[in-house]
Design a protein around this nucleic acid. Structure first.
Length: 287
DNA sequence: CCCACGACCTGTGGGC
DNA sequence: TGCCCACAGGTCGTGG
């Protein structure tokens, strides 16, 4: 599920309970998620202190007082929940409300403050790994990533160069994490609608002037979504259990047959499968 | 390089 | 009510 705004929302929710805390107990309730958990996963993490919780693209990075960084990707259906102890039976031993979804509770972290952070992932497209911190940016998951869309490095000139000579539509290329890192299906559809650019127009033939409109629209939709706590569809919730509200602001996503919300448009949102993914767009104003 | 398609895995919602 | 199919926020790989 989670695209950049949802991962950023999760980061913001987990940071206050994890940063500066020691992981007193770590439990892997199955040996794998999408990939096998690394050997020594539980042993390395148990007793480690989380120095900072960061985000790069759609990855969460827990910087540890260890050689390795804990790298986490939520895939399509991964989510975290925070549970606070309901009581302490004896020092360091806490008890909690029953887990509402034990079947999909794959990884459990318990901090020295007794806060329990559980990773749920029904589809198990998510993954966790331990990656050497000093060479993290050389790791295959990170080496080829494009710039953060909210950074100054992501600008019209960057997109112009990345789109140069490409015949694929901007929809497909913006999903390519090597071009820009963190966008997913929802926010690409939303940004292209705001910029009134067709998802199907050969990217190399989009003018620099229109890319100069697209870039700030991408930044705007991401910033607004982060401010709203992300989008809650199906299973996504913030780490504290609260729902995100940005889905109410969608202009295209999952709005097939409904009116385009762009000023003065009056078109009807359509859905087309493009490169195997649903593309929602307005045929009237997106050119 | 482009595209279409399938794989990974499970759950849910809509149509009949 | 029950069954079946389509589809789901993300990557990764193959083959034409």
């Amino acid at each position: 599920m989670p695209e950049l705004p949802e991962v950023e929302t999760v980061r913001g929710g987990l940071a206050p309970v994890l940063e500066g805390r020691r992981l007193a107990r770590v439990e892997a309730r199955r040996p794998d998620l999408r990939f096998p958990l690394p050997p020594g996963f539980v042993q390395v993490l148990t007793g480690a202190t989380v120095l900072r919780l960061e985000r790069r693209a759609k990855y969460l990075l827990a910087r540890l007082d260890r050689e390795d960084t804990l790298v986490m990707h939520l895939g399509m259906s991964g989510r975290f929940e925070i549970a606070r102890p309901e009581g302490e039976t004896r020092p360091g031993r806490f008890h909690y409300a029953p887990d509402p979804d034990p079947k999909h509770a794959h990884i459990v972290f318990e901090t020295d403050a007794g806060v329990r952070v559980t990773y749920y992932d029904p589809r198990r497209f998510g993954y966790m790994a331990l990656v050497n911190s000093s060479t993290l940016e050389l790791h295959p998951w990170f080496a080829g990533l494009g710039p953060e869309p909210l950074s100054d490095a992501f600008d019209a000139a960057h997109l112009k160069a990345a789109f140069q000579g490409r015949r694929q539509g901007p929809k497909t290329l913006l999903l390519d994490q090597r071009i820009v890192a963190g966008l997913g299906n929802i926010y690409v559809c939303e940004a292209l609608n705001r910029a009134r650019i067709s998802p199907f127009r050969p990217a190399g033939r989009i003018s620099a002037a229109r890319l100069a409109v697209l870039v700030p629209q991408i930044k705007a939709v991401l910033s607004e979504a982060i401010a709203a706590g992300g989008s809650t569809l199906r299973d996504f919730a913030q780490a504290d259990g609260a729902l995100g509200y940005f889905q109410h602001s969608f202009r295209t996503y999952d709005r097939e047959g409904q009116p385009c919300r762009n000023a003065g448009c009056g078109g009807i949102i359509a859905r087309r499968v493009q490169a195997g993914r649903s593309t929602f767009y307005c045929p009237a104003c997106q050119r």
